[in-house]
Design a protein around this nucleic acid. Sequence first.
RNA 1: GCAGAAAUGGUGGAAUGGUAGACACGAGGGACUUAAAAUCCCUUGCCCUUAAAGGGGCGUGUGGGUUCGAGUCCCACUUUCUGUACCA
Length: 920
Amino acid sequence: MDYNHKEIERRWQGHWRENHTFRCVENPDKPKFYVLDMFPYPSGAGLHVGHPLGYIASDIYSRYKRQRGFNVLHPMGYDAYGLPAEQYAIQTGQHPEITTQRNIARYREQLDKIGFAFDWSREIRTCDPEYYKWTQWAFMQMFNSYYDLDENKAMPVSRLAEHFAVRGSEGINPASSKALSFSVDEWNSLSEKEQLERLMNYRIAYQGETMVNWCPELGTVLANDEVSEGLSVRGGYPVEQKLMNQWCLRVSAYAPRLLDDLEKLEWSESLKETQRNWIGRSEGAEMRFPVVGKDFELEIFTTRADTVFGVTFMVLAPESKYVPLLVGEEQRSAVEAYLDEVKHKTERERQIEKKVSGVFTGSYARNPLTGKEIPIYVSDYVLAGYGTGAIMAVPAHDSRDYAFARHFDLPIIPLIEGADVSEESFDAKEGIMTNSCGPELDLNGMQVKEAIAKTKRFISEKGIGHVKTNYRLRDAIFSRQRYWGEPFPVYYKDGTAYLMDESELPLHLPEVDSYLPTETGEPPLGRAKGWHTKDGYPIELCTMPGFAGSSAYYLRYMDPRNNDALVGHEANEYWRNVDLYVGGAEHATGHLIYSRFWNKFLFDLGAVCEPEPFKKLVNQGMIQGRSSFVYRIKDTNTFVSHGLRKQYDTTPIRVDIGFVSNDILDTDAFRAWRPDFKDAEFILEDGRYVCGYAVEKMSKSMFNVVNPDDIVERYGADTLRLYEMFLGPVEQSKPWDTNGIDGVNRFIKKLWNHFVRALDAPQKEASKEELKAIHKLIKKIGSDIESFSFNTSVAAFMIALNELSALKSTSREVMDLFTRVIAPFAPHIAEEFWSLLGHEGSVADAGWPLFNEEYLREDSVKYPVSFNGKARYTIEVPADCSREDVEKAALADAGAEKWLGGKTPRKVIVVPGKIVNIVV
RNA sequence: GCAGAAAUGGUGGAAUGGUAGACACGAGGGACUUAAAAUCCCUUGCCCUUAAAGGGGCGUGUGGGUUCGAGUCCCACUUUCUGUACCA
């Protein structure tokens, strides 16, 4: 009976489907375990061999947990809204829904072949109205909420409005876009429209004029995490800054909680650190500098309050509202020219130039501690969106201020003893203060840290400023001028935004005749006919961004068909949150922040019971492609083998890896590949053409894509699963190398043959050695899975099989145990074994074998004996030997005399079960 | 610049502070075969030594340190990858 993976895998995948083996139901009698993969965006290219890496790892983990008696939730779905389908729709006119459905069908087909234990009855798609109803619902809740900084949670906006009506802005502390203060009378004298406008300043989902990342090429705004180095992450198009009225989410209000709660999570330190940096907490002080000759003050933020004595000028962001108030007549044209120049620079251009630029406003401020007058400048190195949009410049101790001071020839006053500021600034926060004595405050002789604290105390007492913590985390821009996304349940009455009624959800995405913006520059929804409420009010034309649908999907899996709630209370109480989340680290500052924010908001609302969505997170590495190259001699059609290429002047050409096996080129296939290679000549080495290789991103254009279907077809899903794990640690990025797969495939075949032979042979009681081999395996695999070290598990299976083969094991008991232990990794062959062993049902229900320490006990223990740490010989002593006896045995050995050379040992160290070290 | 991770044979990679290189690929040799494929067996970090069995030395990016003992812990440096950046 030969191993026929196609037949076995088809049969068992059918069995799982027909028996709903992996359908899971809430069961209060069983402990739950929620294993989640980041759901994929179904792209047109289908899955390549890198995508399933994380899914295989999580599948092994969830199958293992299930065998250990947990009620495992392991769902899958699709992040179906996305740019590629829309771009494709623009080009072809095909509805993105159709493209998406087709891609999903293809993904499903590919996933099914690998034999995952997903509960497909819980599948969700973000573009499904039954799903996005709850995305829209969450938005409505955010619209109806504000963040109360005293209560430290989201509260109903109605409560805020009631408070305003009774006490005005006094006595309540809401997070806001800009700080406002007004009396009861002022509030009550506002019209409804004006009141709504004012409330917009506090809502968690709010509309605001903000500087946004505008991508003209894509015709839409992008969130900060969708822009990298001034280019859009998708497509790589230039992004510029533009002031636009957009929907935003007040993520910044949650910054302290997002930061603090990181501590509780079992995430990798590097990922937590990335989030900490992104949230960017900095403790400092806000301080006011009076403007000479004007009746207002400039407020700045600084983390270096100690350096006030070294402030020689001030700088405003170009967008600062103070700029027009400070410009003198003489400087007006220069300032305007500068502002104009800055406005037309894209983010990218600003970054590339990195040139010092700026202009004097004509006004001066007074240093509140020294009383000295200092000039006020405008420069784009100060950002409007951070702090107060204005800084006090201390050129001696800040490199940016230093560069600016040098350029404009402004004074530089060193404040730290021994700091040499002739060439560069001294930025370190350490040293002893000097030059820092004023009429009321003396910092001289203090350490920087003390000086900061003292200055903060001083300015608070004097009312010059106050202690302040700033966060870098910005509010998320939530509008996209696109078609393929969730419509906002918002309509406009007289230009004011109103929410629709919850009963009107889901608000379906309308049909349009084209997916491009309208002639007047409105988003594609501007083309939708009848896009208004039944009273004729126009509906919002923007749609929500990609992260809207992916922010709460893990909650929906808990209760995917619930029509009355995002997730029912009971289902949520049972599943709580994700125990293990597996996905790429590239989502560190996007999805993983938004999801945590979204979850916390729902937690404040009382809609979910856990403050964090993902308890443990594992970032699987990327699998890169391994591209193959041939070397064409310039101006010829002759190709030279890799080892000989240096003797010629060659151009490397990527070749489809389908023609290459173990770096040897199939020259006939290569000739047949393209017409211009038809008459190719080859210079061989050892009769073969050896290709070069490079590790690159796996992509069609590099001809290095390996399709999992092909691997499954040729070797079987079990081999693919084991091999992907065998490649190396899940967390690590590594190139795909099909070369090694034969080894794993050989193991599977040997396992099959061993099993079939054992079943045919007459049965014997399992020997001590057999039991030892299998129990060693059980122990090893259990601890490996718990610690996510799947690559060493595969090696352990190979070793165990070798041992059992060598022992000519025929024991059914042993085979039974082996089957259960390998089931999470190679479920198809395990099911087949399970059935051949005469069991009914699925091995997934078989339970995990408990290893018995008794079988692992040795009669004797081998000790390597070292001299000064260098191992020299081995002794064997009975297992129950005492420490002294081991020492005696070590010194009694014939080798001892030789290595001791007649000397007496100074010390003998015996580590039980490990080693004997003799110090001479 | 800043932060995080990493560096081990020809390759992917193993090693709770205790005989470095498990396991696999590749390579070399052999068996079976008319032949090939498949399968099986042996060798495979480097160097020296021996007729052979064997013996010895050196080895985990570099330099220091802690320790009876360091791939593992500490310090400095080099390189690579990842993230992030006029964030005051």
